[in-house]
């Protein structure tokens, strides 16, 4: 049972990881304290839900649509609002994005009403059995997609020209501008990319969890915990942070009781902040 709990934790953790990875780019790298992250995850869930009910599109196909739509949404939000305050104090980032989150939540309620919506997939609650270990198919698919997204993001940030520009801005925006990088455009791109990944996370969550307008609230704090735990600015760190939180949550739920999964998550988070504030894989920070 211990092994099964670990496996379940890793599968759940992959979902957490992909929720965290989007924020890793936005907050970890670009230092935009985005409190609306969970609401963008919610947007991805609603997009997937709509495509599934209107066109019967399989959610794992609509991940691409979520990605594109959330990418555009993210860039628009950046251009219209966040761009204007990005040099201001972090307090204003938090307030502005919390306001945007409130707008998104209620926009969703105006369009979709307050009902908790789910989609029924034939494989949502099916398991594969490997020598006594049960692996849920929906979780397994999400795990694999999360792994692919993590790999692509890592490649994008480390190997491409834009990725290098993003890293340069995250280290020193002024110097990056001097060396000919179009800071606004690249930051907008990076923000859009982070939101796009949040949208994909929403898609992967929908076969497992319901969506309603307030579903995003829980994901924002979770995403911050994962990013800080994994280490600022490290995609790989966020992936590992997500897996770790997943395992901790499952172990706590199984051995202590469901409500202890939150208790332990917060306690671990506070301990990491105190004793290893740079996170598991992070660089040291100011």
């Amino acid at each position: 049972m211990f092994l099964q709990t670990i496996v379940n934790g890793l599968l759940l953790g992959a979902l957490y990881a992909i929720v965290g990875m989007g924020l890793s780019i936005v907050f970890g790298t670009m230092r935009i304290v985005n409190f609306a992250h969970g609401q963008f995850v919610m947007a991805g869930m609603y997009i997937t839900y709509t495509l599934f009910t209107a066109f019967g599109l399989d959610p794992y196909v609509s991940a691409l649509v979520s990605f594109v739509l959330c990418f555009l949404l993210g860039m628009a939000v950046y251009r219209v609002a966040i761009h204007r305050i990005i040099r201001g104090p972090e307090m204003n980032h938090i307030l502005l994005t919390a306001g945007i989150g409130l707008m998104l939540t209620n926009l969703a309620q105006m369009v979709y009403n307050t009902n908790q919506l789910t989609i029924n997939l034939s494989y949502s609650h099916r398991d594969l059995v490997f020598g006594g270990l049960r692996i849920n198919i929906a979780y397994l698919i999400s795990f694999l997609i999360a792994a692919v997204v993590a790999a692509l993001l890592f490649w994008f940030i480390m190997k491409t020209e834009t990725g290098r520009a993003i890293r340069a801005i995250s280290q020193n925006a002024a110097a990056a501008a001097l060396s000919g990088i179009h800071v606004t455009r690249v930051t907008m791109l990076a923000f859009g990319l982070g939101i796009a990944v949040a949208g994909v996370a929403g898609t992967l969550l929908l076969p497992i969890h319901y969506v309603d307008p307030s579903v995003g609230d829980a994901f924002s704090l979770l995403a911050f915990i994962i990013v800080v735990l994994g280490g600022m600015g490290s995609i790989l760190g966020s992936a590992i942070g997500g897996l770790l939180i997943g395992v901790i949550a499952q172990l706590a739920s199984y051995y202590l009781g469901q409500s202890y999964s939150d208790v332990l998550t917060y306690v671990v988070f506070l301990l990491v902040l105190l004793f290893k504030p740079s996170g598991l894989l992070g660089r040291s920070r100011v």
Binding site: A81, R84, I85, G88, N92, L95, L96, A98, G99, I100, G101, L102, M103, T105, N106, L107, Q109, M110, N113, T114, P213
Partner: peptide, 25 residues
Amino acid sequence: WLGDANAFAFFLYGLLIVLVVMYMP
């Protein structure tokens, strides 16, 4: 005519926060 007008009210509340931060930090 707004449908879920309560949600619209909260939407405006969010907008108010956004506008204040943007134009009156």
